[in-house]
């Protein structure tokens, strides 16, 4: 679904990503893991067009999207949930969801907001409240719901567990897994919390100092004690 080939990105003289290649197969979760500063967020920002790579190619469902503007990408089925939740705090819950609908492909199925309220009853109760008044977990639900409004093919999730209680993290990861299994969504998940991420992922990509160390099946990765100790911290 999403194919990344030889991607290199630099901040001035600092190389953030070097020759990164891997694939996100349709209907799977691919987790990109690594320490702070490994280049995980840079990777997502480059894929979604917020940054320009020096070299490499990104294709979405066969379409080259390497240097496409982010606002065009959402119509091709790409949804990026940025780090730190990305709710627009000054807008209401409902307005945030309505914004999500904008990115829907012209031929995509309309997702009624009502379905979101069914899926996230807590959000439904607070639809007129400012998104800034939600808790961290509710915000994460909101941004995921918002990206679903666009009926995406690929969901890029940046550190969804950041700052959330373990119980909430588990809920969110369950939700992501369900979406993949039931709707055939493809997810590129970036996480520092490697243990939780690997528990729901199909594939794991370990990133260190901007380079891919290894790409393996999630189970195998979780079982590799040396790798875990060296790069994943558990």
């Amino acid at each position: 679904m999403l194919d990344i080939q030889g991607l290199s990105v630099a901040y001035g003289p600092v190389k953030a990503l070097q020759d990164v290649s891997f694939e996100v197969p349709t209907g799977t979760i691919t987790a990109v893991l690594g320490a702070n500063g490994a280049g995980k967020t840079t990777l997502l920002r480059t894929v979604s067009g917020l940054m320009r790579p020096q070299a490499g190619r990104v294709t979405l469902d066969g379409t080259d999207i390497t240097r496409m503007a982010p606002e065009k990408m959402s119509r091709l089925g790409m949804a990026h949930v940025p780090e730190g939740r990305g709710v627009i705090t000054e807008l209401t819950v409902e307005e945030n969801l309505r914004l999500g609908e904008l990115g829907r492909a012209r031929n995509g199925d309309p997702v009624a907001i009502e379905r979101m309220w069914e899926m996230f009853p807590k959000l439904g109760d607070r639809r007129a409240a400012l998104a800034g008044s939600l808790s961290g977990g509710e915000r994460q639900m909101l941004v995921i719901g918002r990206s679903l409004m666009a009926t995406p093919k690929v969901l890029l999730l940046d550190e969804p567990s950041l700052g959330l209680a373990p119980r909430i993290v588990a809920q969110i990861f369950d939700l992501v897994r369900t979406l993949v299994d039931e709707q055939g969504l493809s997810v590129l998940l970036v996480e520092q919390n490697a243990r939780s991420a690997l528990s729901i992922a199909d594939l794991g990509v370990v990133l260190n100092l901007g380079r891919v160390v290894t790409t393996q099946e999630a189970g195998a990765l979780a079982a590799d004690e040396d790798l875990r100790h060296a790069y994943l911290g558990f």
């Binding site: 901040y11 702070n36 967020t41 067009g49 917020l50 940054m51 503007a69 982010p70 606002e71």
Partner: peptide, 17 residues
Amino acid sequence: AGTPGAGADTPTVAEPR
């Protein structure tokens, strides 16, 4: 990247994370 609207310049300036 893309159009130079407000904030669009930030990616290249932001700290790599």
